[in-house]
């Protein structure tokens, strides 16, 4: 736990003040992989603001995760171009294949801006385009 406090201290020292709450939370998540409850409490304490404000911000933005993610992050793009080119079927195929696999966190993202390569899946930060359900499954399997 002291590790986590050190992380929070170091990051808050670099981003002092309430107006830097978002960059601070982004960096904390960057190091810890998510925002544990205790980290949010520590941030509130250091910045001398109510925990409800910190929690309010952390839950408002899609980027922040309050639970520990799996080893591999798989993001299925659900933007318009991907949607009309069948991203829903891809998402279902991935959920069937990896839904019970603790190593994989399956998320939806709104749009990664690679619309012309739709449908797109981002695996551990790497985008893959022009997929179909079978290709998507094999791309994810290749990353494990």
């Amino acid at each position: 736990m002291s590790d986590m406090n050190q992380v929070v201290d170091r990051i808050i020292a670099r981003h002092p003040g309430e107006k830097n709450l978002i960059p601070a939370l982004q960096e904390i998540q960057g190091e810890l992989g998510y925002l544990p409850e205790l980290a949010l409490e520590a941030v509130a304490q250091r910045l001398k603001i109510p925990l409800s404000r910190v929690y309010g911000v952390a839950t408002f933005y899609a980027q922040f995760r309050l639970t520990k993610p799996g080893e591999h992050l798989v993001q299925v793009c659900r933007g318009t171009a991907c949607h009309v080119r069948g991203s829903q079927v891809i998402q279902e195929a991935l959920a069937r294949e990896f839904g019970g696999d603790g190593r994989v966190s399956l998320e939806e993202v709104r749009c990664v801006g690679c619309c012309s390569l739709a449908p797109v899946v981002v695996v551990d930060g790497r985008p893959f385009g022009r997929l179909d359900p079978q290709k998507a499954v094999s791309v994810v399997r290749g990353a494990l």
Partner: peptide
């Protein structure tokens, strides 16, 4: 400033709130 993922922040007053460290 890296936006943290909220469509509504494209609206200018929400974007400002976000830079100020608040909910967008």
């Amino acid at each position: 400033f890296e936006g943290a993922g909220a469509f509504v922040c494209g609206e200018e007053t929400a974007l400002i709130a976000s830079i100020e460290g608040r909910r967008g």
